[in-house]
Amino acid sequence: MESLDATIWKAITLLFSGDKELWNIIGISFQISTSAILLALLPAVLLGFVLAYAHFPGRRFLISVFNTLLAVPAVVVGLTLYILLSRQGPLGEWKLLFTQTAMILGQITLSFPILVAMSHSAFQSAEIRAWDTARTLAGSPIRSFFIIMREVRFGLLSALLAAYGRIIAEVGASMMLGGNILHYTRNIPTAIALETSKGDFAQGIALGIILVSMAFLLTITLQTIQGRGALAHE
């Protein structure tokens, strides 16, 4: 086994050498996670909005369900979808197991509760007066919804970044649903798991650097935007 210094140096060299296989894994990762978040975003934000402002039987129960789902491990989501999508499962006919679509479904399932719970909190942070005023001024419910969305945009952005951070780094569901197939379903976390088990730490560290850099970038972006929002209120 190489020394830690040598491994890190090799990882950095690998990153900047334009290694096709490495960048293909990174590309697949971002493609799948971005598709999942884009598909989950609108329905989740709408649901968060409804849970914040509409009063209907079972509303509190639904809020509790989504808060509970925040704590469900990725591997349990992977297992549940695996059972549903496997050949003998109720959705086996769709032949989705070990495809990118299955990985997207897994990541939607993981990100949805985060988006719902955090957007619900964001909408709740706006006073009921805000919604009443928007309804009075805007005329249509759709225009009112967009006014309120703008009002809680920092909270919604936090939800988006938290959900994206969760799914880009999860390994359990991606491994079970994607099968870790090279050039097709191998993403950053599954590649790190595989290369580490093979003893090839350099590629694992290179991919880890990408994940940590992205997490850092997301945090900095969020802090900058929230800082601007806070300054605007001063």
Binding site: E127, R129, A130, D132, T133, A134, T136, L137, R150
Partner: peptide, 21 residues
């Protein structure tokens, strides 16, 4: 139209708040 005791102002300038109406 119902106006609150302390009307709610949205984020942004006075002009933007009027734009919503």
């Amino acid at each position: 139209m119902y106006l609150y005791q302390e009307p709610y102002m949205f984020d942004g300038s006075v002009r933007r708040n009027l734009l919503y109406a």
